[in-house]
Design a protein around this nucleic acid. Structure first.
Lengths: 370, 370
DNA sequence: CTGAAAGCGCTTACAG
DNA sequence: CTGAAAGCGCTTACAG
């Protein structure tokens, strides 16, 4: 057997890649996909050696590795993720866990994660959930265990739940949390720095000359809301403007809450000349309230949103808003999860760099009248 | 061995479910998940019998089945999808394949599919693609084969590609096509009847008194565009109104194309008093163009959209639009895929009923002036 | 650096 | 109706 292997090896090594023995080549083309056994037989090595090549083990002679790799390439062999997973006791699936944010956010995050996963042999499994439900962590737990997930990506608001993170860690499940501040160790975090963006909005509106400002935040239980609104308030304070308590309204990140918030804020005397809504949906609500009251944007009221969703450029006038590179965030999150994974096949996606939100200026702001 | 099994069986059968032998129970709790072997041992049957219970084979005595089922329930046993998949030569994954429609559409479709998949042991893997790219079918082909997908759900525009459907059929991969008309046999189709919706819009606007109408369609290569626009034209014709050729504009389902289309249409004499845009994004573009020209909605111009995206209710005035039960469509599509699958675990989702779009009337239309 | 044996947790023939 | 054997396509110890 060993002799035969050696003999075959020589044949294969001296022959150009296109001249594989016809019989063997046929055996693999007709039955559908080829297996590790086909590769081993054709390369004249044991399947264990092929396995080592697949998994980038250093314990393979360079020329053996090259030969096997060329052969795999040639016959289009790719290891079966299920078989590999069964032996590894884990799958090659990555879960994307989220709780009801905006559709555009989710879809872009998916695109980004898939950018990083392309040609790695990993796939993305989506798992929406309801973080307000009593037993949602149990649902995630069984999802992770049943599928033996390689890891999960956590999006706000679930990413902010420490109980969930603890549960995952206890189960030995890798995870990355996408959140506005560092809630976890760096290897498990991707920060979006929402506070900086809030400060930038404050600076922008102050520099336009606005002194009477309004703020519509998201729900208090969202860390992002606290950071965005807090950054705004701090930014104003640094420039000598104290935002009165009745100039901040707690919204719910929904269109309707934006309408309600604007109606409340615009009744105040003096009337605010600019409003920062902590997401675009609420900013659209501000548009509705203002237009209904006969106020023009930006003539009578400047508005700034957050997210740069498609909505922002589809409103009229187009909304100035904080742009978040969500797709890139998704890519980086998946990258962090895969970092140091030897079983990776194919090229890696570009390296990670700090994520920074920035203001995208459109047509919804101008200096206040008079 | 056989005797021992019989003896054990009696013990287990006579003991209440809560009194499993401590030793055995412990063996399964400590090591993490229990396997088919644990269940077999504890139930005093062979693993093959347990397998039969799992797969709902009729070749099991009712009382044996019940006993095994109770035990599985009690110890929280669930078969490993990877091992099962390896033996079955297919996975328990369902692919959602789509090409760039609106985010809300995709996300709702995912929710719907997951509604049907909940507690079935199947998971949803997302796979966006680019149907304009030369080799996108090859990409899908390798995705399907690599993951040995159980089946795929095809969303417009990829669902309309006959080459893709042929490729999947040839590979023996189940699929469901979501499309406006019957492109395939019923077991592989879910119709959305876009033509009916187009007719409904025509009837509605005609009944309000509009006689000068404008139409902004999607791209010609989208079947949905042809159906929506065609239905509109036919509906008008049935009521005695011929839509002049220069009153129909081919858009691209994008905001910008809506702006461009409206600008073109509104230059015409007599000016249209109502415009039907074949999706909400383009309708938002019509808003922008009209407002910029100083026309009020609905005072000077009535507008109808299609999709009932969040955008529709966030515009001001709120947009009247065709509502599509997308989540339900997703659920039904997954249901069709799973139909007749014996390996299903857990309760099925509600049965399928015809999907019908309907007009959701809001504030963007009124009778024409004068 | 390389390989033969055993095993991951299930299932499909094949017997009874 | 039930079970023992072999196998799905990989990997992990264990030898050499």
């Amino acid at each position: 057997m060993k002799k035969q292997n050696t003999a075959r090896r020589k044949t294969a090594a001296s022959a150009p890649p296109s001249q594989v023995e016809p019989g063997t080549a046929k055996a693999m083309t007709e039955g559908g996909k080829s297996t590790i056994n086909d590769v081993a037989r054709m390369a004249g090595v044991s399947k264990k050696t092929v396995s080592r090549v697949i998994n980038d083990s250093p314990l393979v002679r360079p020329d053996t590795r090259e030969r096997v790799q060329a052969l795999m390439q040639q016959i289009g062999y790719a290891p079966d993720p299920q078989a590999r997973g069964l032996a590894f006791r884990r799958s090659f699936l990555i879960g994307l866990i989220y709780d009801n944010p905006t559709a555009q956010y989710i879809v872009n995050m998916q695109y980004g994660a898939l950018d990083a996963l392309r040609n790695t042999g990993f796939e993305l499994v989506v798992h929406p959930c309801d973080s307000k439900s009593e037993d949602y962590i149990q649902g995630i737990r069984s999802f992770v265990q049943r599928q033996k997930l390689f890891g999960v990506i956590l999006i706000p608001r679930v990413s902010e739940d420490q109980d969930l993170a603890d549960a995952l860690r206890e189960m030995g499940c890798r995870y990355v949390r996408i959140a506005s501040i560092a809630l976890d160790e760096p290897a498990r975090m991707l920060q979006t720095h929402d506070r900086l963006a809030g400060i930038e909005v404050a600076n922008y509106l102050e520099s336009l000359g606005h002194r009477n400002l309004g703020l519509i935040t998201g729900p208090r239980r969202y860390r992002s809301s606290i950071e965005r609104g807090g950054g705004f308030i701090d930014g104003l304070a640094k420039r000598g403007i104290q935002l009165p308590a009745d100039c901040a309204y707690e919204g719910g990140y929904t269109f309707e809450s934006g309408v309600a918030g604007a109606e409340k804020l615009l009744q105040r005397t003096p009337r605010p000349t600019a409003i920062f809504a902590c997401n675009d949906e609420m900013a659209a609500g501000v548009y509705k309230a203002a237009l209904r009251m006969g106020l023009s944007i930006p003539g009578d009221l400047s508005v700034v949103g957050y997210d740069d969703s498609p909505l922002a450029s589809q409103l009229w006038p187009a909304l100035s808003t904080i742009h978040l590179p969500i797709r890139d965030i998704g890519r980086q999150a998946a990258n962090i999860l895969l970092a140091g994974e030897p079983a990776l096949r194919g090229p890696r996606s570009p390296p990670n760099m700090a994520v920074t939100p920035h203001l995208s200026v459109r047509d919804s702001c101008q200096p206040p009248k008079g």
